[in-house]
């Protein structure tokens, strides 16, 4: 019987990467580029900037490979770098929300009547309107599936503080998006 192929752990790949193994870098890139680019996109609302941040995050992983400590998790480390780079970009922007895509028609309307794409754009705008730390918390936990411990580590906050950010962010979103779903306006 043919044996199933084994998946090499991130730790094992990092050990190879420390030795300058380009194939290990390619494997890590394939595993985590989606999370890093996806998170950056939700933070910045701009695909080109998200790509730049993904590139810079991975370049930093490559450059810092020899100093890598096994206790860190690769995905958490990459997302923390991406998060810091996003924050730097926010600070350089005068009006953050102006860079998010415009929504053609923002009149309240039942979800069933809106095209899926329009609903998506409204959600993106609602996310963009959140304070950046609330948006980060929701991006990491809801969209990227990080555990509370991982997300708190990326943001440099306690679990309690993370939960507070998540709750406040979701409460604002529920209010802003209440016209999109019949159960959202309930209290």
């Amino acid at each position: 019987m043919k044996a199933l192929p084994t998946v090499e752990s991130d730790d094992a790949l990092m050990q190879r990467l420390k030795g300058g193994d380009g194939a290990a870098f390619g494997e890590l890139l394939g595993r985590h580029a989606g999370a890093v680019a996806g998170y950056s996109y939700r933070m910045l609302g701009n695909a080109a900037e998200a790509d730049d941040i993904a590139q810079e995050s991975f370049l930093r992983l490559w450059r810092g490979r020899e100093k890598w400590e096994p206790r860190a998790q690769v995905r958490t480390w990459l997302l923390r770098v991406a998060h810091n780079l996003c924050i730097d970009r926010f600070r350089r922007r005068e009006v953050v929300t102006s860079e998010f895509p415009e929504v053609a028609d923002r009149r309240p309307s039942p979800a069933g009547e809106l095209q899926r794409k329009q609903v998506g754009r409204i959600v993106v705008e609602a996310l963009a309107a959140l304070p950046e730390r609330q948006r980060s918390a929701i991006g990491l936990v809801y969209y990227e599936g990080l555990s509370n411990i991982e997300a708190a580590e990326v943001l440099g906050v306690s679990i309690d503080a993370l939960e507070s950010l998540l709750s406040r962010g979701r409460r604002s979103l529920r209010q802003d998006l209440s016209h999109l779903h019949p159960h959202l306006g309930e209290e």
């Binding site: 680019a37 996109y41 993904a54 959600v123 979103l173």
Partner: peptide, 13 residues
Amino acid sequence: LDEVLAEAPSHLP
């Protein structure tokens, strides 16, 4: 809310 949030477009590299 989860259902509505899932409609946000993603960005794949």
